[in-house]
Nucleic acid binder design. Structure first.
Lengths: 346, 346
DNA sequence: TGGTAGCACTCTCGTTCAATGAGTGCCAAG
DNA sequence: CTTGGCACTCATTGAACGAGAGTGCTACCA
């Protein structure tokens, strides 16, 4: 039953808005007084009973008001919600906050995360640009001590990634320098994804196996890539904001919460979903994530891009009860702004 | 009154031990039953009243048992406590946990922090070796884009530090490579502290000002050092353990707690204290830290070293009510072990 | 004179109970 | 279809109360 009467929608909207504001179950009288002056509370009660039957509302106990279910929120967000546009002043505030730091990507992204968390009073997240899409600026090999070599990858965007390799054979610094010069010439300005493919290809090519130096260099780079691709960076800021939400005033829940943040990989995977799909703001509610660590959290996210290529994602994480009508535009605006900032440099 | 009668000490000890175990105020009868069978509860009560007058114990309310004060804990730790030696098996467990990873310093230190937290069921902390003492392995300059240069410092211990500099003038990669070769030759294997001094000295030296290249390279390195010295790395693991302590079952306190962890610099400064003083395990109780963020936490820490030079510090952070008699030896042992592991490589 | 037994007293904590009030469902009338 | 009215349910609150833990004090004992 995707069709709801005009009135049912109004009631659902009223319940959601009121509940988001107060955190409490909301009763029929409250609605008839505050939102729909035309009809009496009894009428509202009838509608609410219908909505409950459809699974959009829920009564914590018999004599309590109603609370929106996940399904109810979903419907509200998809069909009813009217986003409140940002005030010009708010826009300016965000722009200003990101203007000052836009030179260094690392701090820019971290700052973005902070801005998101600050504006939405929840946790803000920003995912680094997909590593496969970023271009290599420089690769360097440093011998730390016997059998221990550090490989440092620097991407154009300013991400520095280092890996320590433990080799069978010992290689001296001079030879490593040769590797470096060699590979820098070939790979510079290619994306890491392209490089990876190239390496696989070259390693198959038998004749290269005879070129000792080249072969070893490739092998090392390959190893370094292995762990580089695994480590995806994610900035999470403002986790402390979440504690203020009354839904987490219970210690047991707080434990769940921080447990969820403990390994970022789950959240990264979730944000990756945002990337894979069409662009635009996406809201994932509680159990929809099918990660039970996040079953009572929701994520509002959007990709940011350069031109037509999706780079990374950013968003806001908070409890199910959030002011979506405000946060969605904030995320949208911030993503657009960040995308614009990503254009500039070259 | 630093002199306490034998019996008073026994009573204090009993109160501390029992309170650490249970978290509750402990009464006279409990003590006479569980710890000091010879005397009656009435006698204990008299002693307790004395101890309270001295400020070592405290009664939450009239008809409750006693709880040790900070001062009481201090006295207990300094004068009464008998450390329980670690079981051989525990020692072996710790050794084994650190054996596997001892090749890469970053992971070794992180693992150490995890081990500490795991063994003590509190948060474990490990401070990176003091940056001024570590030796430079390699310095590299990479031009990211116009007016934007990344300086990468790699230390012998495997710490990688990068800084993005925004220069007035643009320098091309070839020149930067020259800087690199130049500086690597001079500075390699010196400690960062020595290098810093050397730079200051050289920059004063007027004749160097005419060597354009050298002068610019020095200036850049100096800038890079600026922010490198500020950023000291600290691993904190197992913060989640702290939530389990009943003293943090109150949400307000939890907020305080996580707030305290939010900026690591406070904790770093506290650990630095451990370094500056004589070696050995040090316990800082609550307000003694004179950081009001940490007023209800205590830190048990110890330096670790190579030979006679203190490198860094490690320790355990938890509530005032911790099993010091067990944790102190764990920290002690782990610090000694880590020191031993730092000897090996060369 | 130091230790002890006993007792009255204090204070917290959990339980019970009733009152309160918010909110519902349903029915009959408009 | 809407509405007013009414009986009903249930969480919450606060008061009263008893149980239990623990104390301080006093009188007594070796």
């Amino acid at each position: 039953m995707n069709q709801l009467s005009e009135r049912a929608q109004q009631v659902l909207e009223a319940v959601v808005i009121d509940h988001i504001r107060s955190g409490e179950p909301v009763g029929s009288r409250t609605i008839s007084k505050r939102h729909l002056l035309q009809v009496s509370s009894a009428t509202i009660r009838n509608v609410m009973a219908d909505l409950e039957e459809m699974g959009l509302l829920l009564q914590p106990h018999t004599s309590a008001g109603r609370v929106p279910t996940e399904k109810g929120l979903r419907f509200y967000i998809d069909s009813i919600m009217k986003s409140k546009d940002l005030e010009d002043q708010e826009k300016r505030l965000i722009q200003q906050a990101l203007k000052d730091v836009h030179k260094d990507l690392a701090t820019l992204l971290q700052k973005t995360s902070k801005v998101l968390s600050g504006f939405c009073k929840q946790a803000g997240v920003v995912l680094w640009p997909k590593i496969t899409l970023t271009r290599l600026k420089h690769i360097e090999f440093v011998r730390l001590r016997a059998h221990q070599i550090m490989v440092i990858l620097i991407t154009k965007s300013g991400l520095v990634n280092h890996v320590v390799l433990h080799g069978e054979e010992d290689v001296d610094q001079d030879e490593l320098d040769k590797y470096g010069r060699y590979l820098n010439d070939i790979f510079r300005d290619m994306t890491l994804g392209e490089i990876k493919e190239r390496i696989i290809e070259e390693m198959k090519n038998e004749k290269n196996l005879f070129d000792e130096l080249y072969s070893r260099a490739l092998k090392m780079t390959d190893q370094a890539f292995q762990s580089t691709f695994e480590s995806s960076e994610l900035y999470i800021e403002g986790q402390l904001n979440l504690i203020n939400n009354p839904e987490f005033s219970d210690v047991e829940r707080l434990r769940h919460l921080f447990h969820a943040f403990e390994d970022k990989s789950k959240i990264i995977r979730l944000l990756d979903l945002t990337l894979s799909n069409a662009s635009g703001v996406k809201v994932i509610l509680g159990k929809e994530s099918s990660l039970n660590e996040l079953y009572e959290l929701s994520i509002i996210s959007s990709p940011y891009k350069r031109g037509n290529t999706m780079l990374g994602a950013l968003g806001v994480i908070g409890p199910l009860r959030m002011d979506y009508s405000r946060i969605v535009p904030v995320v949208e605006f911030t993503a657009a702004l960040l995308s614009r900032l990503m254009e500039e440099p070259e």
